[in-house]
Design a protein around this nucleic acid. Structure first.
Lengths: 129, 129
DNA sequence: CTGCTATATTGCTATATAGGCATACAATGA
DNA sequence: TCATTGTATGCCTATATAGCAATATAGCAG
């Protein structure tokens, strides 16, 4: 990761745009195709003003593109990379959860062993920590 | 990206931890190995209290691990995936910059063509927009 | 032109958080 | 135990921003 400070700031900016659940929800809605503001509201449950604001931020960041069609304005993903990014993070978080779950199981196992071990002094002595 | 709302919130949280330049700088410093708080200060130019705070956030997020050694506390990367993530984003941003640069060059080219075209009325007429 | 619908924007409030100063806390040596 | 060094934390200020209500703006049909 050899990035100039200003480049690193831009990386931080990119993460910042994605650091808000409402915006991720809006992006999720775009996974299945272009949508206007009203459709976004329906898909996300967010208010109109709110959706509009978040879409503006996403458009300014170059993540979505904006197209007027009649009274409606349609937004479409312009940077598919964003989905990959979210997927990578989601997968990693899932993995971590599974690892923790595994560790929890091992702890449970250890607890059960210890519970048995309390009944027999000689077997606890063998499990030197 | 089929994530439950709570999972998506965790994705947002992950991006949030990375959305701050100071924290990215701290992570960068860890690329070259474990460091104590003072070393982080030197590597990043940030203040002690500030560094400590950011390291705490990173530790709580499970991104760095913390080890006391004498008076010093060493921090080390616990989630190398973070570096991949930053690299992906950095690369993509670079690509976008290059694409924009290309487009700018093409616009320059078009401008030059137009400049030539103004000197000859018949050749401009041929370029039906 | 008017009325309607869709969307963008403004202004406000509440909340979060970065950075810095001061201080508390941890570890160590004399 | 005390003094020193390294680090963590509390408090404060300033700034950013989410969400919402109200309103301005854009597009269209009659």
């Amino acid at each position: 990761m050899f990035l100039f400070p200003s480049a690193l700031a831009q990386v931080a900016d990119c993460f910042k745009v994605l650091s808000e659940l409402s915006r991720l929800q809006v992006l999720c809605a775009l996974k299945s195709g272009s949508k206007n503001v009203t459709e976004h509201m329906e898909a996300t449950g967010l208010g109109q003003a709110n959706v509009s604001k978040h879409l503006k931020i996403l458009a300014q960041a170059g993540i979505v593109s904006r197209t007027s069609h009649g009274v409606s304005v349609y937004y479409e993903i312009a940077e598919p990379f964003i989905f990959e990014l979210c997927e990578l993070v989601g997968d990693r978080l899932t993995s971590r959860l599974e690892e923790q779950s595994q560790q929890l199981k091992q702890l449970e196992g250890l607890r059960r062993t210890a519970a048995f071990g309390l009944g027999s002094r000689s077997s606890t002595g063998k499990g030197g920590k």
